[in-house]
Design a protein around this nucleic acid. Sequence first.
DNA 1: TTGTATGCGTTATCAG
DNA 2: CTGATAACGCATACAA
Lengths: 336, 336
Amino acid sequence: MKKKKSATIVDVAKFAGVSIGTVSNVLNRRNDVPLAEDTILKVNEAIRQLGYRRNAIAAHLSRQRSYELGMLLPSYDDYFVKFAGEVEHIVLEKGYHLSVFSAPDKPELGRRHLELLLQRRVDGLFCHGLAMPPDTARAIVKEGTPIVLFNAWGWPDDIAAGLVNLDVASACAEAVLHLYEQGCRTIVYLGNMIAAATDEQRRIGFEEGIRRLANEPIVIGMLDSHNPSWLKELQRFITGDHPVGVLGFNDLTAFHAMSKLLELGYRIPEQVKIIGINNTPVSRLSFPGMTSIQNPYKLQAEAAVRMMMARLEGEPGEGAIVQIPLQLIPRKSTER
Amino acid sequence: MKKKKSATIVDVAKFAGVSIGTVSNVLNRRNDVPLAEDTILKVNEAIRQLGYRRNAIAAHLSRQRSYELGMLLPSYDDYFVKFAGEVEHIVLEKGYHLSVFSAPDKPELGRRHLELLLQRRVDGLFCHGLAMPPDTARAIVKEGTPIVLFNAWGWPDDIAAGLVNLDVASACAEAVLHLYEQGCRTIVYLGNMIAAATDEQRRIGFEEGIRRLANEPIVIGMLDSHNPSWLKELQRFITGDHPVGVLGFNDLTAFHAMSKLLELGYRIPEQVKIIGINNTPVSRLSFPGMTSIQNPYKLQAEAAVRMMMARLEGEPGEGAIVQIPLQLIPRKSTER
DNA sequence: TTGTATGCGTTATCAG
DNA sequence: CTGATAACGCATACAA
């Protein structure tokens, strides 16, 4: 119950009848230091008996490395959590600890998180493009802490140790084409102006898709789900000649639209076809099943960690840029 | 770019022309040590100029406290993430850092996480009842690290510094009554045998609700969503005389059932009424809107942190037990 | 009010 | 192969 002080390396050394340096050596199994089989046994036995547990704080101070990595997220949304979980898992295998923070639209809170991480002397930072302004990032890197950015579209590429962007734009363009192929002649993007930078990529892709359809007679619409009249405006597009295609900001936005339309009596996919983004459980479980865009967070996590490790354990090297492709998952909501 | 070594307290002292002890004093603004206004200014100026940032690792080693708290989760499900985020936010205000881990049904991974946290000398642990076996918890507490348990139903109450359980059982009982009041004379629980301990609480509450209806002529059913035939079995309950009430393991399970039934042509809420648990966005956005049970994660987080802080900063005290009430949110899916 | 000295638990260097 | 010993950066009694 009381703060019973735990055994230290000194206790172990005493118990095993060896010196503290030796204990440290068997603890860290350093390959350039040969060890007697017998010593190892003695030390391990002492560790067991005393219930010794290495003090990571002291080790980190001595080593001048924290073996901690930080991650700054804009929110704890489904996709980010999965990404973070994946990164956590991978870096754990490599002996690192991941500290995750999110600062939902609170710049001031974000700075506090960052300061905390920096005070903890994290060895590196994974950072979403929305979670930190570019010049802050540049300053941190200049002071020696590598940063791997993800989903930082439009950032200057001289800042980070790496840049891992989802190719959302291409996926959205593909989605537009898919809607066209399924018979839509009116295609609408239902966005989210609050999440500006994220929204922009979807818009860019949407417009790119439209551009590829330049010679076709289609009507396009750009709506925003934070505008109270989005539903009314959406209804105006539904004329009856052709099905209307809707690409939502994410699965939830798309699902919201689908529910509202069903409630109003529209038939999906006959009158309206809908596509979401992120392929969350709701898109799979809804009726009708909702076409969505799979977000390969695992791939992205692997790429991000690879970059971080290259910087941490290898050469400084160039900051690589990687585009992660997404995949359209067709379901009932866009069938012909 | 290079690992430019950052300024230390020594540099600051030199620059300000004071001693290192003084710098430490102004840094920590200890109230039993008086300071000259002038010294404070000089030191702060030096800190600014040198871009000094305190090394938390060294401070923690010296203080013999890590100001880090750990959290062990069974998964990164929506509810847990929100709870964790809330705890993180609250403890941050109090100067603590929260490290969250999840070990989706991997006992071995869970042990590694725990070991890591212990090596980092966390000051305390928040732990879900599913994330650690009771005797492990007991051993840790005996060695001096306080544990606050949450959703650890059925745990012996002598272990932890505190126990914060959601009163899921009562909420489920209430849900059963709600279904009855809305006209259901057949009431079915659609569970999840994989999440045994969690499922059990729902079962207990469901059965308690049924018991209160002991004098009424009702048919009850217990199904499991992991049994491939759950949907067929559920259909058998739908005879047409009265609406059938379904309580799902969580929103997703309930939503899944609702979608499947809609697909088969059943009408909701006329023929089947459905209740989910957790009140996630999908329950609000679905059509028809799905009645759900609100999980007050913020309340629970506050209670958990309060207990932890009492143990950390105050007296050892008794391990309190708190039951957090949940709230039924009625929507279309259970209307008469 | 400020400075000095010691300790925190490890790692790493370098003689034995 | 093993054992002293000096960092690591800071906090804190205690002396001045």
